[in-house]
Nucleic acid binder design. Structure first.
Lengths: 269, 269
DNA sequence: CAAATAGTGTCTCTAAGACAATATCAC
DNA sequence: GTGATATTGTCTTAGAGACACTATTTG
C-alpha cells in the first residue's frame, strides 16, 4: 500500500525524548569451600558477581555488571553479551526479573534497566577474562529476614557490604523491595539483587535453574546441595530423591575415589 | 565530591542511539452473557480490550492499547496512565510480563515495549471514555492447544481474529510463543496476548488477580466462576471452598432476591 | 572395622479430588 | 412442592515430611 510507505518515510520518532536502556546481570554461582578431610563433602556457598566502578557516579563502589542495549539486538541478547564479556560463559538460562525505571535511579540521566538472573556453572568460570572483568569479583551472599527488615550481606575477603531493605509487595516469586540502606552498592542495585535472589529461590523450589549450577552429569546429592545452598534450607535425602525423580534420568556412570560409596551420575531430563 | 559533580556536568548520553519505550496493556475483564431465566446464574466469558488503529502502520488492524514512556515516570505509572486513558479505571494490580524488544517488531523504528496484564472489574467499566477509547472494544477471547499449535481466537460481534502460535519455552508461568499467523493483529501483539493469558492463568491458579474481576464484596460462587472462566476449567464447589477459605473473610451480608438460597458475601483477606 | 556418603522402605499427616447429602430461598 | 443455588460432610488417593534402616567404598 502506497499510503503506508509514504507514512513510514515521513514518520519520525525524534520528537519524543527517549531513555537509554540497559541490561543488568545478577550472575549467581556456587563457590566450593576449602576442606581438610578429603573424604568429607565440601560445603558450598552462593556467590554473586560484582564489578567495582572505575568512573563517576558511584566511583569505587561495587555494582552489577551491565551494558547498554544496542540497535538490532533483543534485551536478552544484550544480557547474554554482557554475561559473556564478564565471565566468558554462555549461560544456560536467563530469567528476566523486570524493568527498573524509577526516575533518578541513575545520576547520569534517564536510564532504565531490565535486570536478569543468570546462573553460571561452577566448573565454567574463568577469572579475569578480557578488560571488563579486571575489577570483577564473586561475593558470598546472604539474605535473611530480621524482625521485619531484610538484611543483604555481600562479602569478598575483607570487603563487606551490608544493605537493609523492606518488602513492598509480592506476587508470585516476584517481590519488590525498598532500599533503606544501600550498604555502599551503586545505583538501585541492592533492590535489584534482593528481587533477583527471591526470584532465584522461588525458581529453585520447583527445581528450575538449579541444574545450571552443575555440569551435565551430577549426583543427586550434589543437586540436593545446590537447592539447599540456594534456598538456605535443609531437606531429607529420601524426600529430595522422590521429588526430583521425574526431572532427571540415570546414566550408567558412577563417581570414583571419593573415599566412600560411589554415587550414580544423573542427567537432566 | 567535586570530581563527581564535574563528571556529571560533562557527561552526555547523546552519543548512543536510544530506543523509544512503550508500555502495552493486556486488559482483561469478564463479560456477563444474556440470560432468559432470571433464577439461573448468568454465564460469563473472558474478554480483552483492543483498539483499532487509525494510522499506519497496521492501519485498520486491532492492537493492544499502549503508549510511550514519559520522562519522570516509571513504566508502571505509564501503564497505569494508559489503562486510565482507555477505561477510566485505576486497576488494582498490574503484572509485568516482560520486555518485548525484537528488532523490527515495529516498522516505525526502534521501539521496545514492556507489556502488562491488567484486570478490570466488571462493574467498573464505562464504555467510550475520552478520545482514545473511540475505537476500543472488548473482544471475547479463547486460547486453546490444538495438536501442537495454540489457537488464539478473538471475537467482537461479526469480527473474528484467529492467530496461530507455537510454544517456544516456558519457565514458571511465563511462556514464550512464536507467531505463525498473526490473524490480523498489529505488531507482535498476538505473541504478547498469548503470554499474557498464560501468565493470567498461572496467577489464577493460586488465586492471584481473580479478586480484581469482582467488586469488594462477592459470593464464593462468583469467585469460583471467575477462576473457572479465566482458566477455562471446572472445579467442584466443595473443593474450591476449602482451598479459598484462607484467602477470604466473611461479611455479615447476604445476596437478596436471586430466586434461590441467598449466599453469604465475602471480602478478600 | 571405622568413617563417610549412597540409597531404600515405610509411617504419618495433610491436601486435593470426587461424590453425596442437606439447606434455603422465590414463586 | 419445584427449581435453582448455597453449603457441608466424608471417602479415597497422592504427595510431603520424618525417621529408621541398609549398602558400598577407602583406609
Amino acid at each position: 500500500m502506497n499510503g503506508e510507505k509514504t507514512f513510514l518515510e515521513n514518520y519520525s520518532l525524534s520528537d519524543y525524548e527517549r531513555p537509554s536502556v540497559t541490561a543488568d546481570i545478577v550472575a549467581f554461582r556456587l563457590r566450593t569451600e576449602e576442606n581438610d578431610n578429603y573424604r568429607r563433602d565440601r560445603k558450598t556457598s552462593l556467590s554473586l558477581l560484582l564489578v567495582q566502578r572505575g568512573d563517576h557516579p558511584y566511583k569505587g563502589c561495587w555494582a552489577l555488571p551491565g551494558g547498554f542495549l544496542n540497535p538490532g539486538e533483543t534485551i536478552e541478547e544484550c544480557a547474554l553479551r554482557e554475561v559473556w564479556e564478564e565471565t566468558a560463559v554462555k549461560p544456560a538460562s536467563l530469567l528476566s526479573i523486570g524493568l527498573f525505571s524509577e526516575p533518578g535511579r541513575d545520576p547520569r540521566g534517564w536510564i532504565i534497566s531490565n535486570a536478569f538472573v543468570s546462573v553460571i556453572g561452577s566448573s565454567e568460570v574463568r577469572q579475569s577474562h578480557g578488560d571488563d572483568a579486571a575489577d570483577a569479583q564473586w561475593f558470598d551472599i546472604s539474605f535473611e529476614q530480621e524482625n521485619g527488615e531484610y538484611i543483604l550481606l555481600l562479602s569478598y575477603r575483607e570487603i563487606t557490604l551490608r544493605a537493609v531493605l523492606a518488602e513492598e509487595k509480592s506476587q508470585f516469586g516476584m517481590t519488590s523491595f525498598t532500599v533503606k540502606d544501600s550498604g555502599g552498592l551503586a545505583f538501585d542495585h541492592a533492590k535489584i539483587i534482593a528481587r533477583a535472589l527471591t526470584a532465584l529461590r522461588t525458581a529453585a523450589k520447583d527445581f528450575e535453574m538449579i541444574f545450571d549450577f552443575l555440569p551435565e552429569k551430577f549426583t543427586l546429592t550434589e543437586l540436593q546441595n545446590v537447592q539447599e545452598t540456594v534456598m538456605n534450607i535443609s531437606v531429607l535425602p529420601a524426600n529430595f530423591r522422590r521429588k526430583i525423580a521425574g526431572y532427571v534420568e540415570e546414566t550408567d556412570e558412577y563417581t570414583q575415589g571419593a573415599g566412600h560409596r560411589p554415587a550414580k551420575l544423573y542427567r537432566r531430563k
